[in-house]
C-alpha cells in the first residue's frame, strides 16, 4: 500500500515551497494552477482515443503513425509532453506496459498512474512473469496469444490499443469507450462487452 508522507517530508516540502516563493521561482498560485491542469488528464481520454480508432479507420491510422497527434486530435495539449506511442494488439499478440526503472506512464492521456503501477512488485514481475501478473487481474488471454511486455525505459510513453471485443457490432464510439478502463490501456485487462 501507498503510505502517507512522513512528517519530515511534509516539513521539507513546506520549507521548499516557501523558499521558492520567496525567490519568486514558483508561487502558491502557480502550484494550484498546475495541479488543476494536471487533474484534467484522465483515462477517459485514452478510452475515447481507442473507441474512435475502433470506429474510424483514418483515426486508427493516425494513432499508429503518431500517437501524440492522435491525442492532439482529441483536444489534448501535448506541448512539452513526451511523445506518445501506441501499441496495437492484434489477434495472437497482446501488449502489457511496465517501466522497470521508474514508472514512466502516458500521463497526458491516462492521468496519474495508480499505485500498483509504481509498486516494486509490478515493476519487477511484469517483465519476468507477465502471465502471473495478468492473473492478479483475472485476465486470461485467448489460447495461442503471445504477450509482448513493453518496458518503457526511455523517451516515449506507451498506451495499448486493444482489439475491439466481439459482440459490439453497431456500437457507437461513446458506448465503446465505456468498455475501456485505465487498466485496459496499460494492458493488464482486456475490454469485454456486456
Amino acid at each position: 500500500m501507498a503510505h502517507a508522507p512522513g512528517p519530515d517530508s511534509i516539513a521539507l516540502l513546506d520549507r521548499f515551497t516557501a523558499a521558492l516563493a520567496a525567490r519568486g521561482v514558483v508561487t502558491e498560485a502557480q502550484i494550484a494552477a498546475q495541479i488543476e491542469r494536471t487533474d484534467l488528464a484522465d483515462p477517459r481520454i485514452g478510452a475515447a482515443m481507442v473507441a474512435r480508432a475502433w470506429t474510424d479507420p483514418d483515426y486508427h491510422a493516425l494513432m499508429l503513425r503518431d500517437g501524440s497527434q492522435a491525442a492532439e486530435a482529441m483536444g489534448v495539449s501535448m506541448a512539452g509532453a513526451p511523445p506518445l506511442g501506441v501499441l496495437v494488439d492484434r489477434p495472437g499478440v497482446h501488449h502489457l506496459v511496465v517501466c522497470t526503472l521508474c514508472s514512466c506512464y502516458p500521463r497526458a492521456v491516462l492521468g496519474y498512474p495508480p499505485h500498483w503501477y509504481k509498486s516494486a512488485a509490478y515493476r519487477a514481475r511484469a517483465v519476468r512473469d507477465p502471465r502471473g501478473v495478468l492473473a492478479e487481474w483475472g485476465t486470461t488471454l485467448p489460447e495461442g496469444t503471445e504477450i509482448r511486455v513493453v518496458d518503457s525505459t526511455a523517451d516515449y510513453r506507451w498506451m495499448v490499443l486493444p482489439l475491439r471485443p466481439t459482440g459490439t457490432e453497431g456500437w457507437d464510439a461513446a458506448r465503446l469507450a465505456g468498455l475501456v478502463g485505465r487498466d485496459v490501456l496499460v494492458g493488464t485487462q482486456l475490454p469485454v462487452a456486456g
Binding site: 501488449h95 517483465v127 519476468r128 507477465p130 503471445e146 504477450i147 511486455v149 518496458d151 518503457s152 526511455a154
Partner: peptide, 26 residues
C-alpha cells in the same frame, strides 16, 4: 533510439515460448 524485441523466456529461463519483451534502447 530503437525499439528492440527480445525473446522473453530466454531472458529468465522461464516463461512461455513466444512471449517477448520490447524495449527502447539507445
Amino acid at each position: 533510439l530503437y525499439h528492440v524485441r527480445f525473446d522473453q523466456p530466454a531472458l529468465w529461463n522461464e516463461g512461455q515460448a513466444g512471449d517477448t519483451v520490447l524495449v527502447e534502447l539507445y
